[in-house]
């Protein structure tokens, strides 16, 4: 097993961890962080698989560079949306994640 394949496998693990966090964490900030972990996993898979035979492929590297910038932009927009939700409702949770028997919990 080459080091590049190991990176790709670690990327798969990160992807699954991010996905689980996205589904399980009700707090929006944690969801955004989990989404970034998920994205990093995808980038690691792309770069790792792109050099698994020892020859470094510049095409996935360029795609990942593009992806990183888009991920930053998406994260900033998500943070702005979460902040807007906090301003309007005082909650950092989506309506379906709020326990409706309890009052505002944060």
């Amino acid at each position: 097993m080459s080091a590049a394949l190991l990176y790709a496998l670690a990327g798969a693990a990160l992807f699954a961890i991010g996905l689980a966090g996205l589904l399980l964490q009700p707090h929006l900030l944690r969801k955004i962080l989990a989404f970034n972990i998920l994205g990093s996993g995808a980038f690691l898979i792309l770069v790792g698989l792109g050099q698994r035979d020892g020859i470094i492929d510049p095409v996935p590297q360029a795609m990942v560079l593009t992806g990183i910038v888009v991920a930053i932009a998406a994260t900033a927009l998500a943070l702005a949306l979460a902040r807007q939700l906090l301003d309007l409702t005082g909650q950092m949770r989506l309506p379906e994640d709020r326990p409706d028997t309890e009052p505002a919990d944060d």
Partner: peptide
Amino acid sequence: LTVLLCSGLALALGGAML
């Protein structure tokens, strides 16, 4: 169940890469 499914996804992805 979610943790189990996500672990399964990780294993499937890893298997596909190998």
